[in-house]
Amino acid sequence: MAANPYSILDIGKEASNQEIIRAAALQMRQKRFCAKEIAQAQKMLLDPVSRGCQEFLYHFDFKGLEERLCRPLEIKPPEFDAPCLTLFDNQTHDC
């Protein structure tokens, strides 16, 4: 199993097939990865089922997840406006 194909091709989750092909050609020229890896990455992302699997493995909607988890925390608590308690006023060695 190769590494993250999106990273190899340096493309985002929404890239179209045309963008994938263009990105693969660009990477071939830049030679940051070997030709086999680039070809494999391109193949993976051009096949819809394989691409779905790669999305499953590499793309997470952290923003949406964080927003969902934030919801219960967004409610502002009541302000602290209570008076100072006289709880200790009768203690020995009192003020």
């Binding site: 199993m1 819809p48 089922v49 394989s50 691409r51 779905g52 699997c53 999305e55 499953f56 793309h59 909607d61 949406g64």
Partner: peptide, 20 residues
């Protein structure tokens, strides 16, 4: 519906993932 673009391929994707 939210994230994966290939909705109609969901079952195939699931099967492939299980095999993987």
């Amino acid at each position: 519906a939210q994230h994966l673009g290939n909705e109609d391929k969901t079952i195939e994707i699931q099967d492939r993932l299980i095999r993987m």
